Amino acid sequence: MIRATRGPDGVALLVLDRPAARNALSLAMLEALRDALREAEDARCVVLAAEGPAFCAGHDLREMTAARDDADGGRALFARTLALCAEVMQAVVNHPVPVIAAVEGIATAAGCQLAASCDVVLAAPSAGFCTPGVAIGLFCSTPSVALTRAVGRRAAMEMLLTGRVVPAAEAVQMGLATRLEAEPRAAALAMAAGIAARSGRAIRLGKRAVLDHADCDLPEAYRRASAAMEENLLAADAGEGIAAFLARREPHWTDR
């Protein structure tokens, strides 16, 4: 369900590989993605891609519908699915290294949530993003968590209330996608390779710092960012990088 590979540059490629089901996030799929993310915590960068015509169609509605025949009407499976999905999305956001999404095809509901949770989103011109639950009586409340943080409340509400498909070019304008790429996976791997060539300590410290100050008021944000910068300056790689810059030579990272 998740095809995981690791390149010699330390880039982990995680591929959603359930194309017949449009990569729907069944319980098994969510568990596999959670485990793959954990195993990639020592990578230098992560690329998240998908096989087939859709990036991800969201939750597995067939699995959820079948659970309605359970004695509890499906409550236990619904609760387990949503809890696991929240765990996976937070694992993406809080992953120690950058996570780059390569989106081809449609990213729907929890699939849109997955893309919005990534640090960078490279989208094919033909890609689309939507939260269409409202059309089937199921408001996309959990996807709204990632969506409002990515594009703001009003833009997110318009998507959530209408369920319309946002074309890739508009998604870039909204901030839901980073930029358009004719070959998103190749572009994501190239970007990841560039990140992997930098100081691993600096990248990990930097991602953690951005997450740490994102929701703070301005004075607290600067306090936290300054503390992170101080820690970074004391690292051996920062000393090497600055020395290399001043000497006009290539740096030799030791903490990769």
Rank of each mutant, 00 (worst) to 15 (best):
L82S: 06
R75G: 06
D217R: 09
D217L: 03
P251S: 01
A146G: 00
A186M: 03
R149M: 15
E250T: 12
P132W: 05
A187W: 03
A196N: 09
E181A: 01
G7R: 12
V99I: 09
E31R: 15
S144P: 01
L33R: 10
G206H: 01
L16C: 00
C112Y: 09
L138K: 08
A76C: 12
R223E: 03
R62L: 15
A40K: 13
D212Q: 12
P184D: 03
M1W: 14
G137P: 05
M159K: 06
L33H: 12
A146P: 06
E39P: 07
T254M: 11
D60F: 03
L218G: 01
S26G: 11
A235P: 10
R6K: 15
Q90Y: 12
D212T: 13
D72Q: 02
A107L: 01
R3G: 13
D255L: 02
R3Q: 04
V11W: 04
T178C: 15
M29D: 14
E220T: 07
V145F: 12
A155S: 14
R201S: 10
A71V: 15
A221K: 06
A187N: 04
A28N: 14
A197H: 08
T178V: 00
A127I: 04
V46Y: 07
E39D: 13
A214D: 11
I2C: 06
R34S: 13
H252Q: 12
R22G: 02
E41Y: 06
D35G: 13
V47I: 14
A109Y: 11
D237C: 09
R201Q: 07
R153W: 14
S199V: 03
A244Q: 08
L77Q: 08
N94G: 05
D42E: 15
A228W: 01
G194P: 00
A187R: 10
G74M: 01
I203M: 08
V88W: 07
D217F: 02
A124W: 00
C45A: 14
R204S: 06
E51C: 13
A86H: 08
A209K: 10
L161N: 01
V103W: 00
D9A: 10
T254I: 15
P167V: 04
A20E: 14
I203Q: 04
A236D: 06
P125Y: 02
P143T: 11
V99L: 00
E231M: 07
A102Q: 05
L233N: 12
D215K: 07
G133W: 08
R6M: 05
L25T: 05
V103S: 02
R80S: 10
K207D: 05
L13M: 05
A57E: 12
E51Q: 13
T162P: 01
A192M: 12
E183D: 09
E183G: 14
A76Q: 03
A86Y: 05
D42P: 09
P184H: 01
I203H: 08
V99S: 00
F139H: 08
E104V: 11
M174F: 04
G137V: 00
F78N: 10
G52I: 04
R6G: 11
T65N: 07
V210Q: 04
L30G: 08
E250S: 09
I136P: 09
V172F: 04
E104D: 00
D119L: 02
A79Y: 10
A196V: 12
L61Q: 13
A169E: 13
V92Y: 08
A102T: 11
A57T: 12
P184V: 11
C45Y: 14
A67E: 13
E183N: 15
R248L: 07
V121R: 00
S144L: 02
S141I: 09
G194W: 01
A225P: 09
P219H: 01
